[in-house]
Every structure is written in C-alpha cells, then in structure tokens.
C-alpha cells in the first residue's frame, strides 16, 4: 500500500501500516539524533517539559547540513543517520512523548520494536546518503532548538512536503524487515 499522510498523525493511521508499505509525509518533522535524544531522556527523567511537542509527531534521525544565508537557514543535505545509536533512548521517548513515526536508516532493536507495538508507532526507512533528495522535500525551517549542541545535533523543526517514499520497515504488529534468517 502507498499512503500519504499529514501531521499530526493518530494511532489509527499507524496501526494500519504494515512492513513494506510506502509512506509520503507532509507537515512537520523534528530532527533528533544522539545528543538531542540523550537530553530529551534526561528531561523526561527529571519530569521537565521539552520545549517542543512530539505528540502525534514525526522524529527524523538526521543531522542536516544546514547553512545560514542572509539570516535564513538553508537545508543543503539532509539524509537519515544510523538509527541504532538511538536504540537506548527511543523506547522512553516513544512511550512518554508519543510520536507516531520514526524515520531513519539501518533499523532499530528489540526494545523499540516492542514499544512500537505497545504504543502504536512505526519505524520508516529512508535511504541513507540520499541527502540532496531528502533536502528537496524540505520546504522550510520552522524552528531550531538546542543549537548549542552543534548544527548536526540540534533539533531542527522542518516543514516537509511529500517526504518519501519511506518504507515501513518496522510496524506496530511486531514485524521488521531487518529480521534475518541467521542469528547474529
């Protein structure tokens, strides 16, 4: 199946998704990688409110190449980063902040898969390294948080139009395209 979806996203939509489906996303996505995940989880533990709302939202594992020209941010190249580094944080983030879609590359682990089932969320794969193609779907930088973490590690709030096709690689029914026939 091929889906087009706009943010915010509800649980019903996500529960329909099955591995192998394709999704195009329009609306708002939040780039979050290593340091932002770590900071977010620390805030959750301390009971603090993050400065942005991920409820029904989309997390994109991405550290864009962004440059400021004439006081405006330009997203030059913005493909996904390796999602597995976020495995230790993602379960907590999904459970507490309820984003519905996670976009990344390379797949995630058992804990995330379990949380996707429990909360109702899905992990989507976008081809790693396709940075210019991904940036072509970014229409605007709406905001940027935690720029003190550095350009790649900051949280970029991006307005995207038909971002995709993303492949549903881990769904809310416990299926994952990363499960192999052999054991590692």
């Amino acid at each position: 199946m091929i889906y087009e979806v706009s943010t915010p996203i509800d649980e019903n939509f996500v529960r329909k998704l099955k591995v192998g489906d394709l999704v195009y996303i329009s609306g708002v996505v939040f780039t979050l990688r290593d340091r932002a995940h770590s900071k977010l989880v620390e805030m959750i533990r301390k009971g603090e409110e993050p400065p942005f709302d991920l409820y029904g939202g989309v997390i994109y594992h991405c550290g864009p190449l962004a440059v400021k020209r004439n006081d405006k941010w330009d997203i030059v190249s913005a493909g996904p980063t390796t999602s597995m580094r976020m495995e230790i944080f993602e379960g907590d983030v999904i459970r507490r902040l309820k984003p519905r879609l996670i976009i990344g590359k390379g797949g995630m682990g058992e804990n995330t898969l379990k949380t996707l089932i429990e909360v109702g969320a899905a992990y989507l794969a976008y081809p790693g390294g396709a940075g210019v193609l991904a940036a072509s779907a970014v229409k605007k930088v709406l905001n940027v948080f935690w720029l003190d973490l550095g350009v790649p590690e900051a949280v970029w709030v991006l307005e995207v139009e038909k971002f995709g096709p993303c492949v549903v690689a881990m769904d809310s029914h416990g299926k994952s395209l990363y499960k192999r026939g052999y054991s590692t």
């Binding site: 190249s77 493909g79 980063t81 794969a125 081809p127 940075g131 790649p152």
Partner: peptide
C-alpha cells in the same frame, strides 16, 4: 530496488545542484 533507484536519483541531483551527496560530509 526502490532504495537503489532513490540513491541513483540522489547522485544525479547532487551533481546537478553541486550539493553534497550526503549530509554527512
């Protein structure tokens, strides 16, 4: 196949626009 098609599309786009192929330079 879809992944490879998008990668090849990205390669052309990067060359055309003279932009870094991947954001991880």
């Amino acid at each position: 196949k879809l992944q490879l098609k998008m990668l090849l599309e990205n390669v052309k786009l990067a060359r055309e626009l003279k932009r870094p192929i991947c954001q991880d330079t």
